[in-house]
Design a protein around this nucleic acid. Structure first.
Lengths: 146, 146
DNA sequence: TGCAAATATTTCGGATACTAAATAATTATA
DNA sequence: TATAATTATTTAGTATCCGAAATATTTGCA
């Protein structure tokens, strides 16, 4: 295979891998009965417990009106709660409901376990190849971006 | 770094890479003044010239009613044309407008060139690492899926 | 041949997601 | 204190997305 095609294949392979991950994510969210954007917010709240609307917006690269709408729908289903800051009363904190947090944690864990199981099926050598290749690509992207 | 964390990092690194690619795609589509799903269809038509609605649906994993709607909006902007098959008059072919095809081709090419330029900045060794790592991961996913 | 079944697409209703602009409330500052 | 800046929400408009029903056409078969 010539050099040109090999380089395009990197893109194709990446797309294939992205597709598979995307599908896993969808399964994960379907199990929790939430949509993709809702799952993003839940995922962030799983690790931060309390987030401002503005922080969520920035983290997700969406406008705050969009986030406000998504939080509306999550709140209606009792998955998150809004809480006005007493410190600065313009600010709204979004909390994940404790019950839903536990349920989500299990589902997220299940997916991570599945990925880890898969990685564990690789030989030591394959594993090193994967880690090395991905990190090299990441470095390359980073050094190209600024 | 212990083994556990190394394996989680694979997921994180993948997410980072996916994010960067996603952003490039968005820029690409913004330049053509189309949305993500519209861009998917244009991308497919760039390589096939003529596609049935049902073929597009299957390729994109969407229902044909959804695809029909997206094609509606592309057609309204003159980017694609519908054409009834004379062979089987139930079938509708979607063609990309020749003018828009040329414009898109340039934009897509620009993005591919950018990616190729980036890959060309890697040393031969780095390049091999990337290709090898991605292909190993792909094989691992494939052997795990059925 | 004539009619039922199958196929391809469209239409419709209902939900989410997304943005920009307008609004409301609060805080910071000149 | 008057004004500017910040934070979140609401509103209006567009785009996805699905499933069910409608439409048009073709195919199978009695």
């Amino acid at each position: 295979m010539d050099e040109f095609n090999e380089r395009i294949d990197v893109l194709k392979t990446l797309k294939f891998i992205m597709n598979m991950i995307h599908k896993s994510m969808e399964d994960e969210f379907r199990e929790l009965n939430i949509t993709g954007p809702q799952g993003m917010i839940i995922g962030i709240l799983m690790r931060h417990r309390k987030m401002k609307i503005s922080e969520l917006s920035k983290k997700m690269g969406l406008t705050s009106s969009t986030v406000s709408g998504i939080v509306d729908r999550l709140e209606k289903q009792g998955m998150v709660k809004r809480e006005r800051s007493s410190d600065d009363r313009r600010v709204v904190y979004v909390n994940i409901d404790e019950e839903f947090r536990k349920k989500s944690k299990e589902v997220f864990k299940k997916v991570e376990d599945k990925f880890r199981d898969m990685m564990n099926k690789a030989t030591e050598e394959e594993h090193d190849e994967i880690v090395k290749g991905l990190n090299t690509l990441k470095r390359l992207i980073e050094s190209n971006k600024q």
